[in-house]
Design a protein around this nucleic acid. Sequence first.
DNA 1: GGCAGACTGTGGCCCACGTCACAAGCTGCC
DNA 2: GGCAGCTTGTGACGTGGGCCACAGTCTGCC
Lengths: 225, 225
Amino acid sequence: MDEAVIRSSPLFAELNDAGYLAIRERMTEHTFRRGEEIFHEGSPGDKLFVLGAGKVKLGHTAPDGREHLLAILGPGEILGEVSLYDPGPRTATATALAKTALVSLQHADLLRVLDARPEISQHLLRSLAQRLRRTNAAMADLIFSDVPGRVAKTLLDLGQRFGQPADGGLRVTHDLTQEELAQLVGATRETVNKSLAEFSNRGWLQLDGRSVVLLDIERLRRRGR
Amino acid sequence: MDEAVIRSSPLFAELNDAGYLAIRERMTEHTFRRGEEIFHEGSPGDKLFVLGAGKVKLGHTAPDGREHLLAILGPGEILGEVSLYDPGPRTATATALAKTALVSLQHADLLRVLDARPEISQHLLRSLAQRLRRTNAAMADLIFSDVPGRVAKTLLDLGQRFGQPADGGLRVTHDLTQEELAQLVGATRETVNKSLAEFSNRGWLQLDGRSVVLLDIERLRRRGR
DNA sequence: GGCAGACTGTGGCCCACGTCACAAGCTGCC
DNA sequence: GGCAGCTTGTGACGTGGGCCACAGTCTGCC
């Protein structure tokens, strides 16, 4: 079960069992299948989510309908916390990329915990600060790196977070279509496809549906910077 | 004097006079002239700054030496707060763009205030959350807008924050060279120059050294999206 | 007042990448 | 099992904008 993942998420890890149980009973469990929306841009943001299992994409749709992904989140990660600090409608849409289990918690309930245990909010703050740094790094990449470079970097990042050793390489089950990967790196599907093909026939990785096996991490890393 | 600006910055506005004076005496005043560095990427980040007057650019230098600006900050704004939440070396370099007056405050001193008045930290959190939203919007622009569009948007944004009515338009003294403006929008100086020239001879704005007068805001806005 | 160094203004060349257009697999549902 | 609709693979073409190379203007310093 993924209860253990929730329990040990940074948000709750420091609570003792009694404290955790008190907050746990205010949480609601949900499951989603690929393509189902967890929340939509513009809707009121009064809840926060913690992923137990699965994967979620956080995306933003431009007025002209073009879409761009802000982040991919996995087990143990927190979702929707921005509107905890800055109340108002959601500024992004969260969609499940695979079968996903998560719990939701009303902001009000969480704030009660934070009141009692202010040191926990440090974890939330740090995660927000890190998200900001990440985003800044991504912007720098958009400006300075070409598409293959961004693809390589993104795969390495996903590999570090979700990969597991297999088949003489690092298997990364990203659950993304090439279209979604393109939206994540800020390019078109076609260009991403060609970059992947290039990496593949250099033997740096091996494509396999919605996952890849990274074979030559060192070279990918060099290509990424 | 710019004391009033500091006093009414979101960080301190809610304090009563006694509370403010208590923290005020832990602050140190500094002034910088154009080009002087307030802090440098990689140095230990143990202070936070509040701008009283002037303007500051926040930039990041890539390993290959190319530079990119994250934000332009003006009077009343806070600087260096990220390392308050996520301690460690500074991840950006702050440089004065004009004659700038500011005060600095050790994190430790500020944390003492926040302990006593936790509601104040809400303001800090909100400003961080807003910074994150801003950055996300900037990323979307990098992906979806062309250079002239980003230039138009950036000028409108600066205009909204620093502009004042004059000469039948909105005068924006941005204190940026075209090179710096280019680093801010993620393009080269040459392309930015050509965009500005284009806007200028369409009569949408008027160039004037390190400031511009925005004449046709409506059209600039349309160009920006 | 004159020289040095920064900044602005513009044209030419070229390539990375977006757009378009299809072909070919894969998946799943009736 | 077959058709419909995703998804992947790849080639042709056009162009926005980076890079280079100057010329012209502005600023401040000796």
